[in-house]
Simulated scan of single mutants.
Amino acid sequence: MDPAIEAIRTFNRFFTRHVGAIDARFLDTEANLPEARLLFEIARQEPVQANLLQAALGLDRGYLSRMIARFEDRGWIMRDRFEADARTRPIRMTEAGREAFDKIDQRQRAAVAHDLNRLDAVAQDDLVQALTKARLLLDPDAPAEFIIRSARIGEVSQVAARQSILYAASHGWGRELETLEAETTAAFLRRFKPGREECWVADLSGTMAGAVFLTDEGDSLARLRLLHVEPFARRRGIGGALVDECVRFARDRQYDRIILWTHTVLDAARRIYAHHGFECIATEVHHEFGEPVQGETWQLRLTA
């Protein structure tokens, strides 16, 4: 744990300095960073009650009250007067408050743009993915939208790498599985049949959150391969959405059946397959991953 703890603390020290988190005047404005954050929430939610701001920001009630009082003294906000309890009076921004917020917002956008302009397109994408993963790893229940799209250059190979890492950690499957994954993805790229095969990626706020393949096995038979969902993205329905895409694609291309190979120990994946109408039609113990493990063949008939 010690190296991981030190790495995170080192980054925190860098980032608080980088964004001016401890500056008395954030981006050379009248507000510090907590005040700028509060002003953002008021601008986004107005009219809004103080208790909702407290819940959104996780602030101490007294600290929040003092900031709101400072905003009133500066003429940035006003409160409706029809409630006796100040905590229930909706807060609205004044024209002066809107001007203060716009100044902070524009300067912050300019500061972020300055950081991004120093990076090429690949580095920008790496940064966005790293930040998204960090946010969702630390807050896996945070709201985030995903889309299902076709894989981009390099992502097919990433699937093999990520699955090898994840299965080594969860089940101890090592080099043998990694070899099989690499051979499967290389064959997909080498023999790809446009319009008959596809690799789909679940894109969660700009980062790969999972993937699946569908390949043409001949005689109107398709094979679902290499389904996985990243740990930081689970419990969002991504696995089901990826299998949905496979089944829809196979029906549109008039395949008769979809088959897949999985393992008895992979309970979450098996539940997804069963939910979509797949049935286990054969089991066999194998040693392809070193230790004996029970493999299963599942099938979904698409035509009567």
Rank of each mutant, 00 (worst) to 15 (best):
E198D: 15
A187L: 12
A142Q: 10
S205P: 14
R109S: 06
E181L: 04
L204T: 01
Q124N: 13
E198W: 15
A142N: 03
D219H: 14
T207N: 14
H171S: 11
L131D: 07
T185P: 09
V212T: 13
A100S: 08
I165T: 09
A202E: 00
Q129F: 03
G97T: 00
S205W: 05
I165D: 05
I153A: 05
L138Y: 14
R190K: 11
S170V: 12
R107I: 00
Q108H: 14
Q106I: 05
A186V: 09
A168E: 08
L136M: 04
T185C: 03
G154M: 01
A111T: 01
I165V: 10
Q129I: 02
A168M: 00
V212G: 01
R149S: 06
D203Y: 02
L138M: 09
I147N: 15
A211R: 03
F213P: 02
Q163M: 12
D139M: 13
A100N: 06
D105I: 02
E176T: 05
T185V: 11
D115K: 08
E181N: 15
R196Y: 01
V112T: 06
R191W: 09
L189R: 12
S170Y: 04
G154S: 05
E217Y: 08
A168C: 07
K103S: 08
A187C: 15
L180F: 06
R118C: 00
E155V: 01
S157N: 09
A160T: 02
L214E: 01
S157C: 11
E198A: 03
I153F: 06
P140A: 02
A161D: 14
R118L: 09
G97Q: 08
L119N: 01
L189M: 13
